[in-house]
C-alpha cells in the first residue's frame, strides 16, 4: 500500500538534491573564479548563496512538519533525521563556497603566485565527494557512501601538500604572502567541504542500514 506521505518524502528528497546541486555548483564556480581569474564567477556565487539559505529554512520546515504530523518510524524516521543533518551540511558547503569566492576576489588583485596544480585536483575531488554522497542518497548505495569516506583522506593529503608548498613560497618572497595566504584559506575551505561530504555519506549509511558510523573510535553498543 502506497501512503500519501510517501509523495511528501519524495518531494523532500528532491528539494534536498536540488539544494545539493546548487551548493556543488557554487563550489565549482568559486574555485574556477581562482583558476580562470574570472571575478564574475565569484560574484555569481555570492549572488546565488541566498537561494541555498532559503532552501535550508524550507527543508527544516518540511522536516519538522513531517515529524510532527506523520510521526514516522523506522526507515522513514531515519530518513528525516538524516535529511535534517544533510540539510545542515549542504548549507555549510554553500558557506564554504562563499568563503572561497571571497578569497578569489582578493587573490585576483595580485599576480598569480604559482601555477595551479594541486588546487584543481583538490577541488575536483571535493566536488566529486559532494556529488557521490548525494548520488549515494538517491540510490541508497552504502558502497558509494563508503567510497566517499575513503576519498576524504586524499583531500586531507592534498591540503597538507598545498600548505607546505605555499609556506615555502611565502618564506622565499614576502610579496606573495597576501595571495598565498588566501590560497591557504581556499585549501582549508575545500578540505572542510570534503568533511561535509563525508558527513553526508555517514548519514546516508544511517538512513539505509540504521548504523551510526560516525566517530568509529567511540565504543558503541
Amino acid at each position: 500500500m502506497e501512503r500519501h506521505f510517501e509523495q511528501e518524502f519524495q518531494d523532500l528528497q528532491q528539494r534536498l538534491l536540488w539544494m545539493g546541486s546548487l551548493s556543488e555548483r557554487a563550489v565549482h564556480k568559486a574555485v574556477h573564479a581562482v583558476l580562470e581569474a574570472d571575478e564574475a564567477l565569484a560574484e555569481a556565487v555570492l549572488e546565488e548563496e541566498p537561494a541555498i539559505n532559503e532552501l535550508q529554512i524550507e527543508m527544516d520546515d518540511r522536516i519538522t512538519r513531517l515529524l510532527a504530523l506523520q510521526q514516522p518510524m523506522a526507515a522513514d524516521l531515519r530518513l528525516l533525521i538524516g535529511a535534517s543533518r544533510i540539510n545542515s551540511d549542504i548549507e555549510r558547503i554553500g558557506d564554504q563556497a562563499v568563503n572561497i569566492a571571497q578569497s578569489a576576489t582578493r587573490i585576483l588583485r595580485h599576480p598569480q603566485v604559482k601555477p595551479y596544480v594541486d588546487l584543481p585536483r583538490m577541488s575536483g575531488l571535493a566536488e566529486n565527494m559532494v556529488r557521490d554522497s548525494l548520488n549515494a542518497l538517491v540510490k541508497r548505495d552504502v558502497d558509494l557512501a563508503n567510497s566517499v569516506m575513503r576519498q576524504d583522506d586524499e583531500v586531507d593529503r592534498l591540503r597538507d601538500q598545498m600548505f607546505r608548498e605555499l609556506l615555502t613560497y611565502m618564506m622565499e618572497n614576502s610579496a606573495v604572502v597576501f595571495p598565498a595566504f588566501e590560497l591557504v584559506l581556499v585549501a582549508k575551505n575545500l578540505e572542510r567541504i570534503g568533511d561535509h561530504a563525508t558527513n553526508i555519506a555517514e548519514d546516508v549509511i544511517y538512513i539505509v542500514v540504521g548504523r551510526d558510523v560516525r566517530h568509529p573510535a567511540l565504543d558503541r553498543r
Binding site: M1, M73, A74, A75, L77, R78, G210
Partner: peptide, 17 residues
C-alpha cells in the same frame, strides 16, 4: 522503532502494511 530487523515489522510500523 528505529531499526527493525524484519521487513514485516518495518512495513507495519511505517504504515505500509
Amino acid at each position: 522503532f528505529t531499526n527493525p530487523a524484519d521487513p514485516r515489522t518495518e512495513a507495519y510500523i511505517t504504515g505500509r502494511f
